[in-house]
Design a protein around this nucleic acid. Structure first.
Lengths: 187, 187
DNA sequence: GTCGTTTATGTTAGTCACTAACATTTACGC
DNA sequence: GCGTAAATGTTAGTGACTAACATAAACGAC
């Protein structure tokens, strides 16, 4: 029985359409379910919470392992930066209109932006663990992870609201900005 | 009539105590109110939402103005970094046990960490506006702001969960980490 | 095909964070 | 004391969930 998947897709499609039309907060779970001829309970059986219709990025161990692979004599921030860049190149995420529509909804909705940040807490924790296991002190690890992931999220949201350019370009640019030297080049 | 302020303080004190004892999520608004001999409605008249008992940092225009004051030939990230450092030095936030207790609750509660991030969205927007008005492109502005504020929040949370050291030390360290050169020092 | 067992969905009732409308008490100026 | 306004209470309702139990639809074994 793969009807379950089908129902889930129908619910998601209806939800995204309604979110776009009338906003995330103004759309109730009941309304989404009704749109598909289903009961409210059924909606919550397929999505543990309303926000998971939009935010369902699974934790990706690629990121932390790419960071672990960086040369350990590099500064912490640089290790995280290069690791994330490498992970992106290794597996670029889908860069289509559906994704962009999803991100646009997130960008427009403060509540969702917050939950998106909460969502990558597990990624952040994994990165911190890798660094700490490499004898980086916890504060530095947390700071580097937060800064890089903050930059990444900014790039993602910017891509979502803009209508041209690829996500990859923006991510590359965001991470490059973190590598800028403090003054004019050295001396 | 300044009874209002008094009631608010009683509610806040009771809430923080309960949050520490049994966790934020396990504590209901009704319980907090009852602890003070008040009705649930009264709680919500003093705090627009449960999280505002813990998160009530007002927007501080000091940050964006300190950033605006940086030399414009510096790289964007560096301008934000130095601006935030200057703002911190100009007005260090309270560094007492009450504050630390509050931050500890936030650090322990994913939902609150997310809302704390959402909370500084207005600060982020103000920083971005300043930079954009200085002819920085929007993406760079967003990325620099997100990275620096992410680092700042990481420092704050780390301070909250640890039991020694000052917040100022951690903030200085967090922002210093963002200035590290990519390779070994120049040549 | 029928039967029985999953699997998908429905129903009902309940909790918790709120909101709105209206009633009541409490404090304070006079 | 008396009137007004601030502070609080009460009731009713919404929306995101959760749990328990009931039904319907699908699928395999026979």
């Amino acid at each position: 029985m793969i009807k379950k998947q089908l129902t889930k897709q129908k619910l998601q499609a209806a939800a995204l359409r309604l979110f776009q039309e009338q906003g995330y907060e103004a759309t109730t779970a009941e309304q989404i379910a009704a749109e598909c001829g289903l009961s409210t309970m059924t909606f919550f059986r397929h999505f543990p919470s309303k926000d998971k219709v939009v935010l369902d990025d699974p934790y990706d161990p690629m990121m932390s392992s790419a960071i672990a692979a960086q040369r350990r004599n590099l500064p912490v921030l640089e290790r995280v930066r290069r690791g994330l860049l490498a992970a992106w190149i290794a597996l670029p995420e889908p860069d289509n209109d559906d994704q962009r529509a999803r991100v646009r909804i997130i960008a427009r909705t403060p509540e969702l932006r917050a939950k998106a940040w909460e969502n990558n807490a597990v990624t952040r924790a994994a990165i911190v663990d890798v660094l700490v296991s490499q004898d980086v002190d916890r504060l530095s690890a947390e700071v580097a992870a937060a800064a890089c992931l903050g930059a990444l999220e900014a790039a993602l949201l910017d891509w979502g609201v803009s209508s041209e350019g690829t996500l990859g370009e923006r991510i590359a640019m965001a991470l490059a900005l973190l590598a800028q030297k403090a003054e004019a080049p050295c001396a």
